[in-house]
Nucleic acid binder design. Structure first.
Lengths: 242, 242
DNA sequence: GGCACATTTTGACATATATCAAGACGTAAA
DNA sequence: TTTACGTCTTGATATATGTCAAAATGTGCC
């Protein structure tokens, strides 16, 4: 397990253009953007395997991922573990902590990553002054709710291969939104972590991926994925409703 | 399927004491409470089976349930259905719609119910003026995220009987919070609806309930439930991690 | 009060996924 | 390069839950 490295060595600050493009694409004029930028005080580099926050940690800030990849997971009292999401550059992490002023999940870097810290009470202050920022924050919170409910649908009603197809298509879409190839990318997580997210054992994940490959819908070599037939992947979701 | 009945016949307005107690227990002085009350314009009575909103409906308001019981559900393109929650008096419904200005699930009354409508843009306006209201709104949104992630844990890693036990204990706790008996209450939903929520078939729900009853942890007569051994129910969660 | 329909229970059987195990593969350190 | 360790794949088998079916029970309407 590595330790987080304070990231003052890396120069590209979480500046205006990045905020707009990645984290907070909100209709603000340049003065307002500057005020928002000024909130974002500390930045950090997190090495692969290091912890951004743990369940139980005091909640003080949201984090905008500038580069890299994280997972969030919750742990039961009985040691059960559930990955609740994988977050990539441009996404906001930490919303779970607002409710009780404490985080309820762990956030772990899956590769070396940079984050911007957004002190939440300052964000609240500013969003009282800027309606457009306020609205954006509300949308981010609501989007997370919608996303989680769609995962409930997946976990509650899809079979293993459908879950995998849904998962890969979702990653594909998000890579596309980030400006990367939607058909060819690296999986940053292990089969075990994918399984934890999809409610499957790692062997089932492996078998389902092999089957998708046998069907010529994807090509996998270790963790690099190529989607060969997007429509075929889409079609295999909901092939057999139950 | 019944139609909603405009509820101007019923007098008990969603007034201060109700707001405080049920929906928005937020630190506001009486002037502020009055301003909040004034937002809450329309009220409605919904008969059992009627629809509060449908997926795709334009989002304009949140709803505070004054009395009664609702379920929310999402439907896949392929007709798959997932109950995403059961909401009781004192709870807020409709948060899913904020993200895209359209609801993403259906909300159905499971018994005759009364709701207060809270126009969301007015709530945003007021919450820019009242930090304590703003903070409360953020907590409500975050709480829903935490709740959904705990259901992901349930769906992703628990066995049928554990899911049932978790579900019953959650209902019990919420009834207790609403001032009702935590050990004896009516289930407002069918076995099919419970199954949809827990990712199980109705037969499995029925069998799991029968088994909990055989184990003397609960007593069920139709839809009235008595919890005989709270600690026993708790113990059967996580008995066998996988 | 009786009829029709929805809901629930229970049984027998099917099946998807978990479990256990072994070997292949990939990566990092010596 | 070799070694060691974590990850992944694949096979054989076990098991929890789904599926199908029938009967019992409950509920609402005429």
């Amino acid at each position: 397990m590595h330790k987080p490295v304070p990231g003052n060595s890396l120069k590209p600050a979480c500046s205006t253009c990045n905020l707009r493009k990645l984290c907070l694409p909100v209709n603000l004029n340049s003065v307002e953007i500057t005020r928002l930028d000024n909130l974002i005080s500390r930045k950090g580099v997190y090495r692969q395997g290091s912890i951004l926050y743990r369940s139980g940690d005091k909640f003080q800030a949201l984090y905008a991922i500038r580069t890299g990849f994280f997972k969030t997971q919750i742990l039961n009292e009985d040691g059960r573990e559930q990955a609740t999401g994988f977050q990539m550059a441009g996404e906001i992490i930490g919303l779970d902590g607002i409710n009780s002023d404490a985080h309820t999940c762990d956030a772990v870097a899956l590769e070396d990553s940079e984050v911007c810290e957004i002190p939440f009470s300052k964000l609240e202050d500013l969003s009282r002054e800027l309606p457009s920022l306020q609205r954006h924050l509300h949308r981010i919170l609501s989007r997370e709710i919608v996303r989680d409910q769609n995962i409930m649908l997946l976990l509650g009603s899809m079979r293993a291969e459908e879950r995998l197809a849904t998962f890969l298509l979702n990653l594909s879409q998000r890579f596309a939104e980030g400006g990367y190839s939607p058909t060819s990318f690296q999986l940053r997580m292990t089969r075990q972590e994918i399984g934890s997210y999809l409610g499957l054992r790692l062997e089932t994940v492996s078998r389902a991926l092999s089957h998708l490959q046998d069907s010529k819908l994807i090509h996998m070599r270790n963790r690099s994925l190529e989607i060969l037939c997007m429509s075929g992947l889409q079609a295999c979701i909901g092939k057999r409703a139950r």
